[in-house]
């Protein structure tokens, strides 16, 4: 099998139309069109708005990626596409479009798992994984801890959020504090100007919770606690220290995420923690993870922020990995699977 397969990857599971091209572990292009501005006034991603935007953006984004990489479709070894999990209608645009490309070029197609792609993308920055890793995947749609032994074979879920995703909590708290959607970047900025003066609850961290939900997360209670705190100030007519609230909220989220991720590494006896997903772009999460992991001799791998949020390069990276491992391509009738199981790397 080829050592460095040239693969084009398509990602449309949420509001970003991403097309990336990689050769083995080398990133050649990462083109992105986002419909985030169209969702902002709704305070969250509207599935139908996202699907319509994907249809308009897909072909121009494919062409931009090919131009950026300086390759032709005929040069590709394979096409990869996010088959799930994600928004059903949004996924389908990418899946059907990728199948059209595969039909026209007579190239093999790989339908891949979005979450596994968030792990695979780090190989573009830090090279192949040399041993098992624990992956912390945190975004607006997911908050999961996984054990990754072999990216081409499968990943083992260890825990996940039982209510809101971490990124969802950022969006909701940002809205509460009068900040725009998506909430991650403005909270990160505000938190740098403030101090974590309020001790907000850390979900699922009591001794009892840890017995049944050791590697699970919960952010719904935190969001409500922040809302209550802010409303109490507003009722008293006292000013809300927005930067301090942002810092305190962010501290609570990052504390739980890193605490459980390190615990998962130690529990599994694994020396590598890889972090991915949009929330992995958060500066406090990156710093706290490095700091805490270092104390336990754990290496943290986290790609640059642009590769943490949804993109096509991550799909191409995983596709390239599957081609190199000699995995069979997907059949043309594979579905867009909004609830795709984490135990499936490809379909």
């Amino acid at each position: 099998m080829r050592d460095e397969p040239l693969v084009l990857g398509i990602e449309t599971s949420c509001d970003e139309t991403g097309v990336g091209i990689v050769r083995g572990h080398t990133l050649l292009a990462d083109a992105l069109a986002s419909s985030v501005d169209e969702h902002a006034r709704f305070g969250g991603v509207v599935p139908e708005v996202a699907s319509r935007a994907h249809l308009e953006a897909l072909v121009p984004t494919i062409n931009r990626a090919l131009d950026d990489a300086g390759v032709k479709l005929a040069d590709l070894d394979a096409i990869a596409v996010t088959a799930g999990p994600g928004l059903a209608g949004a996924l389908l645009v990418g899946v059907a479009g990728a199948k059209g490309l595969a039909l026209a070029t007579e190239k093999p197609i790989f339908g891949v798992n979005h979450l596994a792609a968030h792990v695979a993308v780090d190989t573009l920055e830090h090279g192949p994984f040399t041993g098992p890793a624990i992956a912390l995947l945190v975004s607006g749609g997911h908050s999961s801890l996984l054990r990754v032994d072999d990216l081409s074979a499968g990943v083992t879920p260890m825990g996940a959020t039982i209510d809101d995703a971490a990124g969802e909590a950022f969006d909701k708290v940002a809205r509460l504090l009068g900040m725009p959607f998506p909430g991650g970047p403005p909270i990160d900025r505000a938190a740098r100007e403030g101090e974590a003066t309020v001790s907000f609850p850390r979900g699922l961290t009591t001794a009892r919770d840890l017995q049944s939900h050791r590697f699970d997360f919960s952010f719904s209670g935190l969001k409500t606690a922040v809302a209550r705190w802010v409303e109490a100030r507003e009722r008293d007519g006292s000013p809300v220290p927005v930067n301090d609230v942002a810092a305190s909220f962010q501290e609570a989220v990052c504390d739980v995420l890193t605490m459980k991720a390190i615990d998962a590494c130690r529990h599994a006896g694994v020396q590598t923690l890889v972090i991915g997903g949009g929330v992995a772009a958060n500066s406090r999460l990156r710093a706290m993870a490095q700091e805490r992991a270092a104390k336990h001799g754990i290496t943290v791998r986290v790609p640059r922020p642009k590769l943490c949020t949804d993109n096509g390069a991550m799909v191409a990276a995983l596709g390239s990995h599957l081609v190199a491992a000699g995995r069979r391509p997907s059949k043309l009738d594979f579905p867009a699977d909004s609830a795709m199981s984490l135990s499936l790397i490809g379909v």
């Binding site: 319509r52 249809l55 389908l92 645009v93 059209g100 490309l101 039909l103 026209a104």
Partner: peptide, 19 residues
């Protein structure tokens, strides 16, 4: 219906562009 409709349109669009 939107979702089904888009499957045909995006397939036509990528095939037309690729060919």
């Amino acid at each position: 219906p939107f979702t089904g409709l888009r499957a045909g349109l995006v397939t036509a669009a990528t095939m037309s562009s690729a060919l």
